[in-house]
Design a protein around this nucleic acid. Structure first.
Lengths: 253, 253
DNA sequence: AATTGTTGTTGCACTGCACGCAACGAAGGA
DNA sequence: TCCTTCGTTGCGTGCAGTGCAACAACAATT
């Protein structure tokens, strides 16, 4: 564990919240400002940070470069992108692609709704495991022991009246999701927003990612959204085919 | 300047090229592998790096999070996005939004062509200053001394037969761009690809960003692309209006 | 099954570098 | 003009980061 690197990464995280001055950062890290200055200079040299005006610093362009490179390397994303885009075009609603990595579910692609009212999200943002459709799909696809371990260890913040708040109910829900081949989030994450999700599978039937459709209730009620299920499942199936999935042996929906 | 941070950033850049092993990185940095290990562990703790299999490391999800946050903070991007998207929808071609920051021009948004043949680019990628439409727009918008300084200092790699290869020709071109209110790249960057660009302006008429349209010649010849100029200028003007531009005093096109 | 090679991991001792300090400089407001 | 508030610099010190060497885990080869 490297102290200075550690501090630098905290600086980056802090700058993610918005531009900061040298003193802001020094106070946050509880170190002398000259220390912050030196770290910032190194970050600047590599274009991870740039100055804004005389005294503010913000995140730099190297981050964009790196992260889009990394995103591009994910074959799933590239393969699914056209299907995601078409689903967005057909329905007009917000669509997401999410992936499970290292214990977390994050959005790796997204197309916004054409309507004024939209769900807020962002590529790179973590999705809650217990109250999102993509979270249920991806955790539900893990081997049983891991699934249990996760269900036991995660917190269950109650975000709406419908949010699942304990491990047993969560595990039961995951089982249901596995059976159905799709997941729903009926106002569990945000009031007034419904969501349905489906898995994108690879050659051996393994789940590579999850695709979802999110709609505010004022545009479409829950039954209406379920009416779009065939669209979603169709898109997910087409995307899976592009990822090498062969719908043979196992009788997955 | 912090040595360990410096090394860590080099590691990140290297991982941007693809997953690496510990020894790969140690060789690249010319340090002992235990040193690399410690840096990686710190990076991992902050989710900037994650393991892939037992022995490979790759970029982690914190990068996505940070970079999309940073992108979101740029108001220009948010304001222009719908216009960019519509231009893409109307023409079916690749559209870009680029911004000048700290001496470089980078793409900050993009919508891909609907056609099979596409121009390769990526958000976060640097655009060449001397042979792209967005480069000409953005450098051309800088105050005269800075413009000259840039023209004198940048390299002029000859990428096609049409590429501008000296400072004087470049400065003349920039002057022309300022007059016209738009820029062209007629096969200067890549053979077989034409491009036109226009500025997005802010409240005081200052150039905030550049919007461009790129089309492979096999789809549309240069005159055909010029036919789309009104579309581009219309989108740029609408975007400028959303950024607070008032087309009063100065008689800019 | 034993051997060899490769790669990740750990404990330790040394020293170089990252740290805090304090003084300076620049910019802006009263 | 003074005063405050920042960013910046040079310097001495101590500890954090380094290289080393031994170890562990695993795969490939014999």
């Amino acid at each position: 564990m490297s102290q200075s690197l550690d501090r630098a990464l905290v600086i980056l995280r802090e700058l993610g919240e918005g531009p900061r001055t040298l003193d802001d950062l020094a106070a946050k890290l509880d170190v002398h400002k000259s220390t912050v200055l030196r770290l910032l200079r190194t970050l600047e040299k590599h274009r991870f940070v740039q100055r804004e005006g005389a005294r503010h610093h913000r995140l730099g362009t190297a981050l964009f470069d790196l992260s889009f490179r990394a995103l591009e390397e994910r074959d799933v994303r590239r393969a699914v992108e056209p299907h995601l885009r078409e689903l967005n075009a057909r329905t007009g609603h917000t669509v997401h692609l999410a992936s499970y990595e290292a214990g977390e579910v994050i959005y790796i692609d997204k197309y916004d709704s054409r309507h004024q009212v939209r769900m807020y999200s962002r590529i790179g943002k973590q999705a809650a495991l217990h109250c999102t459709a993509v979270g249920k799909i991806l955790v539900g696809a893990l081997p049983e022991p891991e699934r249990r371990a996760i269900a036991r260890s995660i917190p269950y913040p109650k975000l709406t009246v419908n949010t699942i708040t304990d491990a047993d109910a969560y595990l039961a829900e995951l089982e249901q999701v596995r059976q159905c081949g799709y997941a729903v989030d009926r106002r569990e994450h945000e009031d007034f927003i419904h969501c349905i999700g489906a898995p994108v599978r690879g050659p051996r039937g393994e789940v590579l990612a999850a695709m979802s459709l999110s709609v505010p209730e004022m545009l479409l009620d829950f039954e209406g959204l379920l009416g779009l299920l065939p669209e979603l499942l169709g898109a997910a199936r087409a995307a899976s085919a592009d990822c090498g999935w062969r719908p043979d042996a196992q009788g997955n929906t």
